[in-house]
Design a protein around this nucleic acid. Structure first.
Length: 474
RNA sequence: GCUCCGAUGGUGUAGUCCGGCCAAUCAUAUUGCCCUCUCACGGCAAUGACCAGGGUUCGAAUCCCUGUCGGAGCACCA
């Protein structure tokens, strides 16, 4: 973080557009500013930049959904604001800017102005006197104009070598009412660069972090800051994040469409690249934060490997997660030779003190297709003992664990054929059905388990006929 | 087209401002071994990178130029 020491308090903002729950990429901002806040004993707020009721129409449910996602990541903002509550403030500053000669009302059409701008020529409205501009701006606020009829432009440098910075629009008319009742009467709306620039100053923001798509914003906003004689915050731009491991494009609108078309079950579908999905899969928000912070703040685009999120999560949960057996698409094998009636593998191999599971054996077991023994092969059913596959029956041999240590016998997991319980495991690659050891039916929702030799999973719910789990990661 | 940015292994990152301590750090991934009644965890090891070409210099990942590739903006979107 640049020049963190130069400020009494590092103050940052997270300025989301409330158009839906967050995808994984959105986690980067809170992860980084939240971490900086903790490191520098600073401050950060969430400010919903919801100043376009039309083309970026806010989704009323998104405000809370985003705060929930933030909570999942483990952060609580010091303050929360909505730009749509602050219109009067923006109007006030616009009036002041006009009085300073820094803005003018303009009724050029978009194309007309663009043409002039690209040639570095001022439009005829640029030199209107302050009183006229002020009056026309009041008319804008009062809704006297229709959409597209009149805008307020910031007077920058019409010959600036970067055309993107020339006399940009600060306020425009929008006929569509804002979805929030509190803001539905307003028709004259500020553009992001104006609104955000003013707010950053008023909120005392010292450090702005934002995407490279807003690279020019700082340059545009500096014109306003110069008129007001304000000091511009430190600013860091970073590139886009891509995530491997997902087929679905990481874009709020794309995900939203897929949900509408029933391609996805919802924002928490395990195939969706959303925070709600990762949460349901039992991944800790902290793991996502760890992986995001690792990415740093470089301006080039980065690929986040989901494996680093998984590694971070495994680090957090492995020690405390109990082991269980799950057999997917099991093949039934009868047992012979009087094996023990109950198996008692430990809940966690590194923590014997947690106790053991009680798995009734019965007279046949299920094993995974990949684990099916060949003729006369011996296998070790984990927690139970050694068996030899003879004449379609697993004959208990009674040999001790040394046969495994000698390396001749593979250890596999299993479940009893009759007393096991059905499990549906939802994964990013589709649903998997299987049967688990009986204890799994007694686990509570939200508990995490590790299905041995398969991976971690979160218990989602217990239904009448099966246990629904969400696959976390290997 | 114009204006900005950027480029270190499969991925991410440190180092670049202030050239030598960098035959390049750490993490993750992959592979192998050890541990282990599996997987996971843990331990050990291996693989693997400074975009290219010029220049400056005794010396360049680091400074300069050119090129290549990638990204962003040029909206009455955020």
């Amino acid at each position: 973080m640049p020049a963190a020491e130069a400020y009494d308090e590092v103050r940052m903002r997270c300025a989301p557009n409330p158009n839906g729950p967050w995808h994984v990429g959105h986690a980067r901002m809170p992860a980084v500013i939240g971490t900086y806040r903790d490191r520098y004993d600073g401050w950060f707020c969430v400010r919903f930049d919801d100043t376009d009721p039309e083309t970026k129409r806010p989704d009323l449910e998104a405000y809370d959904a985003i705060l929930e996602d933030l909570d999942y990541l483990g952060f609580e903002p010091d303050e929360t604001y909505k730009a749509s509550d602050r219109l009067e403030t923006y109007y006030e500053h616009a009036r002041e800017l006009i009085e300073l000669g820094g803005a003018y009302t303009c009724s050029c059409s978009g194309e007309e102005f663009s043409e002039l701008k690209n040639n570095g020529e001022p439009c005829p409205h640029r030199d209107k006197d302050v009183e006229t501009v002020l009056a026309e701006f009041e008319d804008m606020i009062d809704g006297e104009y229709d959409s597209g009829e009149m805008v307020l432009r910031v007077k920058t440098d019409i010959e600036h070598k970067n055309p993107a910075l020339r006399d940009w629009v600060a306020f425009r008319m929008i006929d569509t009412p804002h979805p929030r009742g509190e803001a539905s009467e307003y028709r004259c709306w500020p553009m992001l660069d104006f609104q955000s620039g003013v707010d950053d100053h008023l909120l005392g923001i010292t450090h702005i972090i934002r995407g490279i798509d807003l690279q020019d914003s700082a340059k545009r906003q500096r014109f306003v800051y110069d008129y007001f004689d304000w000091e511009y915050p430190e600013v860091v731009h970073w590139g886009h994040v891509q995530i491997d491991a997902y087929d679905v494009k990481m874009s709020t609108s794309t995900i939203s469409e897929l949900i509408e078309q029933d391609e996805l079950d919802g924002w928490d579908d395990p195939r969706a690249p959303t925070l709600k999905s990762l949460r349901r899969r039992g991944i800790r928000g902290e793991a996502i934060v760890d992986a995001m912070v690792e990415l740093g703040t470089s301006t080039s685009d980065v690929d986040l490997a989901m494996s680093s999120v998984y590694a971070a999560n495994r680090d957090l949960v492995d020690e405390e997660t109990d082991r269980r057996f799950l057999v997917r698409e099991g093949n039934q094998l009868p047992l012979g030779g009087s094996p023990p009636e109950e198996a008692n593998p430990p809940l966690h191999p590194n923590h014997e003190d947690r106790g053991v599971r009680e798995i009734p054996v019965g007279d046949s077991v299920l094993v995974e297709p990949d684990d099916l023994p060949g003729r006369e092969d011996r296998i070790w059913l984990k927690g139970l003992g050694c068996f030899q596959y003879t004449r379609d029956v697993l004959q208990y041999t009674g040999e001790d664990i040394d046969v495994v240590r000698e390396g001749d016998v593979d250890v596999i997991h299993w479940v009893p054929a009759s007393e096991s319980v059905p499990v549906c495991m939802r994964t990013p690659d589709g649903d998997v059905s299987g049967r688990a050891e009986p204890g799994v039916a007694a686990l509570e929702a939200d508990e995490l388990v590790q299905f041995e030799r398969i991976g971690f999973a979160r218990i989602d719910r217990q239904e009448d006929d099966e246990t629904v789990t969400y696959y976390t990661h290997p």
